[in-house]
Design a protein around this nucleic acid. Sequence first.
DNA 1: TCAATTCCTAGTAAAATGGTCAAGTATTCG
DNA 2: CGAATACTTGACCATTTTACTAGGAATTGA
Lengths: 165, 165
Amino acid sequence: MRLTTKGRYAVTAVLDLSFHQQAGPVSLADISERQEISLSYLEQLFARLRRNGIVVSTRGPGGGYTLSRPAEEISIAEIIVAVDESYEAANCSETGNCNGHNQCLTHDLWHELSQEIHRFLNGISLAEIHSSQGVAEVAERQNSRYRPQTGIVAPLKKMAVEPAD
Amino acid sequence: MRLTTKGRYAVTAVLDLSFHQQAGPVSLADISERQEISLSYLEQLFARLRRNGIVVSTRGPGGGYTLSRPAEEISIAEIIVAVDESYEAANCSETGNCNGHNQCLTHDLWHELSQEIHRFLNGISLAEIHSSQGVAEVAERQNSRYRPQTGIVAPLKKMAVEPAD
DNA sequence: TCAATTCCTAGTAAAATGGTCAAGTATTCG
DNA sequence: CGAATACTTGACCATTTTACTAGGAATTGA
């Protein structure tokens, strides 16, 4: 599992979608304007999100995208993985310099780590972020074009992790 | 916090170092050969690792690198951050498209997430990986040039995370 | 039919990644 | 001292990824 800006864009966009879909499908043009992500980039991202069953599309006028499931059932991990595609098996074990002999000290480590992070992000649903205090404030700001208060945000609640001491 | 192959390379290299330093400083040439990472790329990585106080260098014949501290006190997060450098503040809040008005829905989310992952990786020390069953096996294989068993590895112990349900 | 919208393909500039090359500087063994 | 070893620095490069542009096709509501 990689963590890059691409996944971040995707999460932003889907989160925006989850905030606005109650009034029907949300067009990418709207998301593009609100989040300042280029339309065509959104098209790329949403093509993958659609192929991965995270969103469904409605064509024609008034069309757009809708979450395929309730926000409670969509995790951050899912979104990031959908948008990244490839890579998972590409780095080791099959291709590359690690196929069959003494290589790749951290192969297993990385795999475990990757899974752990995946598990972590899988435990956070869109709905949880949606209901997070700070995000809601920002979202409202984006609706009503207010000036921001510089206040910092309440941390997400469900994200507590027991650090190994 | 980003997770890319660069950080992975760095962790691999430092882990290799931790396995071999008891006989004195380890040269990058050795690590390069064992881990099949190009010498010059290692030089880049170790320059940053040194600047960040993770390793110390010894010059002259028989020189090389050594961990600056016991492996118990070096976390995976530290290594990855050292090698990544930049980025932390670069994406939002100061530069970019998010400076002062209604932008960046996931800014706070990402920050929290990032910190959470950081906290997680910070809870895993080199020493823990060192003593992890599977990694030790692979390391031994790399020393003695055995053929690998395809067996999968015991998961790291301290990495348990309470998934938000 | 018309316009809104998704869908698809192709291309592309800029950045990041992963790595090479070359010319150093320090250190220390002999 | 001299040479070998090893780190240091900086320029450079190929490839991939990122983020975006352009253009058009398909679909559908009004």
